[in-house]
């Protein structure tokens, strides 16, 4: 029983973390048809800026609780300008090229940003652990959970709800949905696709950085931290259906629970099982659990 609770909560914590990263990835793919490998770098930048800013903030003697606002702020300062520069300064010149070329362009950006991190922050690890223990713990029999981790679940819910509301109840969101559904139709309707692209990419970038910023207080932030995340987020996106918002939710929960179950019950399978699930889903539903099937072109 306790094992079940542990698996469920560990799984949801992991799911929340990967959801925040993956939903940005799936949004960008859905709207722009770009599988953004540089999303991993945004995650890492978010973590670095957060660790650095929180350190500055706390050493200046401000109220510790305010550090959560600093984490949020870090994601915005990273995501907005970097998203804007990447989309306006580089990607827009590539629109119309093959999807694979687009992936490679973001791969090149990823390589560049990996070293940029070392240029800016050096090779030393950064840590700003304070916010992690600020919220105290919750005890469930033998288990102790950090409330910070549990708050990640709440954060993921808020992010999800905001995105859902944004997509369904704002004008930009509705434009986005049209673009996701049919880009040519959107243009025909007079939607400014260029602007939609820029906004989407910035929102996606903020989400990537947000995932990193809120991971920062848990870990020692080091170069190379974005590499592992990106391929996990890919798995979530592919399982859920590329470009599908509910897909990202379900994909993240599925991956989180399965991984947690593996760690508790069969630690040997931890890495293997995530990709096995991804392959299984692709075999039976190549478009992912919530993806739209595409008609074959004639």
């Amino acid at each position: 029983m306790l094992t079940l609770i542990a698996i469920l909560l560990d799984g949801l914590i992991f799911a929340s973390w990967i959801f925040i990263v993956a939903v940005g990835l799936t949004l960008i793919f859905g709207v722009m048809r770009i599988l953004n490998i540089a999303h991993g770098s945004l995650y890492a930048f978010g973590a670095y800026v957060a660790a650095w800013l929180v350190g500055q903030y706390l050493s200046a003697g401000y109220a510790p609780m305010g550090s959560f606002a600093v984490l949020l702020l870090s994601a915005i300062i990273v995501g907005v300008p970097m998203g804007f520069i990447m989309e306006r300064g580089l990607l827009r010149f590539m629109y119309g090229r093959d999807e694979v070329i687009m992936v490679l362009v973001t791969y090149a950006v990823f390589l560049i940003l990996e070293d940029a991190i070392m240029l800016i922050w050096g090779t030393d690890a950064y840590f700003a652990f304070e916010p992690y223990s600020l919220l105290g713990n919750t005890e469930i029999e033998a288990l102790v959970f950090s409330n910070y981790d549990l708050a990640m679940i709440a954060l993921a819910l808020v992010v999800g709800a905001l995105l859902w509301w944004g997509l369904n109840h704002t004008r930009v969101g509705k434009y986005l949905q049209v673009v996701i559904h049919d880009r040519e139709l959107a243009q025909a309707l007079g939607i400014n696709v260029t602007r939609v692209f820029t906004i989407t990419f910035m929102v996606g970038a903020v989400l990537g950085a947000l995932g990193g910023a809120f991971t920062a207080p848990q870990i020692s932030v080091t170069p190379g931290m974005g590499v592992e995340v990106i391929v996990l987020a890919f798995a979530v996106v592919v399982i859920g259906g590329m470009g599908s918002f509910p897909g990202a939710v379900v994909g993240a929960v599925l991956v989180g629970i399965i991984r947690a179950a593996a760690v508790h019950l069969l630690p040997q399978l931890e890495l293997f099982i995530i990709y096995a699930v991804m392959a299984l889903v692709l075999v039976f539903r190549p478009q992912g659990l919530f993806g739209q099937a595409e008609a074959r072109k004639i």
Binding site: F14, G224, H264
Partner: peptide
Amino acid sequence: EQFPKLFAGTFTSEISVLLR
């Protein structure tokens, strides 16, 4: 006996197992 991957970073589940 837990063997997380080198440079895994987060050990949430592993710590739960150890607590349990």
